[in-house]
Design a protein around this nucleic acid. Structure first.
Length: 483
RNA sequence: GGCGCAGUACCCAAGUGGUUAAGGGAACUGUCUGCAAAACAGUCAUUCGGCGGUUCAAAUCCGCCCCGCGCCUCCA
């Protein structure tokens, strides 16, 4: 069953064939740590986490590099204008000399926070995180190379890439140069030869963090870091480059221009872009102010439920954020985990197993359906649908094949491995209070046997107050924590 | 204006030419139970924004229209 992926560059689904057999090199645009990560970031990194996990599951060795833009206008801006003091309502002006330090502080704070929320979402760390400020020399070399080849020019300490020199400019975003020139929204900078030319190196203003370069003190433009760092760690050509839909233009278009202008080689084979998270049908974004940080969302909803919510829509489409949907996801997640528990409970309660009838064709079909869904452009939403069909199958065999340990175990194994593939951990967290609970349950059972339902019900209520829900089943009493 | 995405049940959502239009949530009914709860099961779209067209066959392809959104400026 081959994997088909949608490639933004060709606007088609293509069979996935990495440049090197059984090896995949992927690069994903990471965050600029100047504020808390919001649900939109969560979606992007969960998306590429799934790509990575499924490729690994399929037998590829994946090298996944993600950048951190740790020097940029937004960070500098934040360092100059810290949160106003609430009491005096006056803005404290930070002395220039301290700007660099302040920027580093901001980056550390928000990157740490980013790592924390990613861990909660069960997003695996990339093979390598790479920071822009640790690759200044590489970027300077790149810019020099572009200037030498005539693709870039310097004006008063700034260096720009001359877009018109790169003949294929626009091939990713499907834009034509002359159409864009007439577009009204391109800012005019008289020093640039064309309004579309973009900055490779920015001359430092007084006090701003800066590095030495052949063009004087300054810092790199945004796009160049991705070219310099991705090729350093993954080679001049690699398999996958990902990011949000909003990065297609201009970021990724510019990256292609820079990179291919210098290397003269096709750079990235497959471009993947995830869709946005919307709020009331509008894109969740900083500028609209309609964003919800992951930190805040986790105060209300379990991170795993947020993950399920994010995966319940295909990664390329829009997804609308609402409390109702998060609640639905929590219920769905509970059902998945609950079925795992019920299967285990059922397995444990069988003393003498019936002879197994080997592989169940229905289960095999479901296993196949799951993989088939994932092979179709990482269709996790469809795959989750199959997961729930496995749940229904599991419940049926719990009812029907009470003594067949083998098929119950196989079903549990399927469900477990698929949950893990999608990044839902199945580890059981039984706390120390288990013993006490077991004791109370035994007391209740004794009371029930004696038809002392008053005592039995009281124990049940007491347990409920502790957040324990009892289930009286044919195989005995099962308990679980109220989620 | 250019480029692009979307409209599937009460809500969310998969499906892009052909068996009964996945799945989740809600609701309703039932099973189990001492009673509950929980759990489980069943029911829940002759129909896919509208109108035409192509085809033996359309949610799926084509045309037009309606509605919503995104990118073109920092953005996951």
């Amino acid at each position: 069953m081959p994997l088909f992926v949608y490639n933004t560059l060709t606007r088609k689904k293509e069979e996935f064939k990495p440049l090197k057999d059984k090896e995949v090199r992927m690069y994903v645009c990471g965050v600029t740590p100047y504020d808390e990560a919001h649900l939109g970031h969560g979606r992007a990194y969960v998306t590429f986490d799934i790509v990575r996990r499924f490729l690994e599951y399929s037998g590829y060795k994946v090298t996944y590099v993600q950048n951190i833009t740790d020097i940029d206008d937004k960070i500098i801006n934040k360092s100059q204008h810290p949160t106003p003091n609430v009491q005096t309502n006056s803005k404290v002006q930070i002395p220039n000399a301290k700007l660099k330090e302040k920027c580093e502080e901001i980056v550390k704070k928000y990157f740490d926070s980013y790592l924390e929320v990613m861990e909660k979402l069960n997003v695996l760390n990339p093979t390598k995180y790479v920071k822009a400020t640790e690759h200044i020399q590489e970027m300077v070399d790149w810019i020099k190379g572009l200037v030498d080849k005539g693709f870039a020019y310097e004006v008063g300490g700034d260096v720009y890439f001359e877009v018109s020199k790169f003949k294929e400019y626009g091939k990713l975003s499907r834009r034509k140069l002359d159409e864009m020139k007439s577009g009204a929204r391109v800012k005019v900078d008289s020093r640039k030869r064309s309004p579309l030319d973009f900055s490779l190196w920015k001359a430092a203003k007084e006090g701003e963090p800066s590095w030495d370069s052949p063009w004087g003190k300054g810092r790199p433009g945004w796009h160049i870091e991705c070219s310099a760092m991705s090729t350093k760690y993954l080679g001049e050509s690699f398999d996958i480059h990902g990011g949000g839909l909003d990065l297609i233009f201009p970021h990724h278009e510019n990256e292609i221009a820079q990179t291919e202008a210098l290397t003269c080689k096709p750079w990235v084979k497959y471009w993947f872009h995830n869709g946005f998270v919307n709020v009331n049908k509008q894109k969740m974004s900083k500028s609209l102010g309609n964003f919800f940080t992951l930190k805040d969302i986790f105060k209300k909803y379990k991170p795993q439920a947020v993950r399920l919510f994010l995966l319940s829509t295909h990664y390329r489409g829009p997804i609308n954020f609402s409390d109702q949907q998060l609640k639905d996801a929590e219920k769905g997640l509970a059902r998945l985990y609950d079925t795992m528990d019920r299967l285990q409970f059922s397995i444990d309660s069988i003393e003498i197993s019936k002879e197994s009838h080997g592989l169940d064709p229905e289960l095999l079909k479901l296993d196949e359906d799951f993989i088939e869904a994932m092979n179709d452009d990482f269709n996790a939403a469809a795959a989750i649908g199959v997961l729930f069909e496995i749940v229904a199958f599991a419940n049926r065999i719990i009812e029907e094949k009470l003594n067949d340990k083998d098929i119950l175990s196989k079903t549990k194994k399927s469900l477990e491995s698929f949950l893990e593939l999608l990044g839902f951990s199945c580890e059981k967290k039984k706390a120390s209070l288990d013993e006490e609970i077991e004791k109370m349950i035994a007391e209740r059972e004794a009371a029930r046997k004696n038809k002392d339902f008053k005592t039995a019900d009281k124990i049940r209520d007491d347990l409920l107050k502790k957040g324990i829900i009892l289930e009286d089943t044919k195989q005995g009493v099962r308990w679980k924590r109220n989620a």
